[in-house]
Design a binder for these strands. Sequence first.
DNA 1: AAGTGGTCTAGACCACGCG
DNA 2: GCGTGGTCTAGACCACTTT
Lengths: 233, 233
Amino acid sequence: MKKYEIIEDHFKKKIQSGDFPVDSLLPSEYDICARFSATRTTVRKALDELLREGYIKKEHGRGSRVIERIKTLGLPSVKGFSNAMKQEGDAVFTQEPIIQKWSDQQIFALSDKEGEGDCVYFQRLRLIDQKPVLVENNWYSGSMLELVRSEEFLDGSFFKTLSQRFHIDIIGVEQEIMAKSASAEIASMLTIQEGDPVLFIAVRYQTSLEDFHIYGSWFCNTEDFPIVSNTFS
Amino acid sequence: MKKYEIIEDHFKKKIQSGDFPVDSLLPSEYDICARFSATRTTVRKALDELLREGYIKKEHGRGSRVIERIKTLGLPSVKGFSNAMKQEGDAVFTQEPIIQKWSDQQIFALSDKEGEGDCVYFQRLRLIDQKPVLVENNWYSGSMLELVRSEEFLDGSFFKTLSQRFHIDIIGVEQEIMAKSASAEIASMLTIQEGDPVLFIAVRYQTSLEDFHIYGSWFCNTEDFPIVSNTFS
DNA sequence: AAGTGGTCTAGACCACGCG
DNA sequence: GCGTGGTCTAGACCACTTT
């Protein structure tokens, strides 16, 4: 294993476990050099990777600061989420996590290993200003990861739970985006009319655990809260 | 100016101008070192930037190869585009570039400098397998860039023309995505029924020319060709 | 075997933030 | 003034590709 990967993994684990919480500073590059008997070139390569993967930001003259990583999880953030989602009551479980057979609702094909057993399924309704804006269906392989009960979600976040409790990280996202007419069921959940246009997004998250994916299908009412995406180089 | 930026800009310009066409190899890192009196650390930093911005890929043992850069321009590529768009007749001008007043069709606010004069507007209909899938409205500031006639588009690409002829590069994208019901006009262009759900995307491209943006609004029939997006770290 | 990129060492000086 | 990250030099050895 390469030395910069050793350093990178060391701090990644420390950040995930909370030893370096959000907004804290990592040791200085010189300290890390001494701790790992490495030169700054190597240490900076490791930190550059953490930077690229969205774990830290660099502050010239101050240090490397741990940041909230959610924002790097692909494109779809709903406009106003970051502000409006701060208070509680942002998401409601309309179906607690249960074990069931795989349905044919996933757009993406399952890997062989995933298809062997049953899946865990849960559904949430996300609200902004008490207004329902997103119906979120989620599936993952029950044979590869135990059922995580909704009460166990750290800060209400499934991904945070995955990362901190199981050390499984999201390393990629694939998405298919379509406009659809709302079904009666979706319409009633989003309090719109049947047949109104909704945004449908099929998601597959690739994780650091081989052959383990999170599948999602989202129905969004984009009337008041369009999906936004920023990409800057 | 930093030395790695000088090297980076040098090869960026050479790539844009076609001196290093797609699939060609840049000089070896050692050659670049000699040419710029720099060390490999510095040269590699410059090449890393070109890599990150999607100009080149690295091939261990062979060299740094120039790649097609379109794929890095944000999220929305239409499924099947890369295959189906190879043949001609992929896009039809439904409105040749003309100079007109700014309309209120842009979602994003104009910068002061852009709002001073008129704008250049053009509309295209994009086809896949002879089937219309995307109505594409485009605006840019006529006071900051001359009107480019459709015949002057290099390989039919406005961005390629911007880059190679005017050395203006896309450095960021903002998008708002909504589901809408098709208007009569849009429906007839996409050969669907009025009221059918269509995907609406408002786009603002940020460019390397300060305060100069490209604005777009797209109406997509996603029935047969959903929008896809992949993000991997 | 020769040439390429990938990793790493051991230093140096500069620019920024803060007490 | 001191500690931090940002840039840069001069060199070494390794892993991969091609001839």
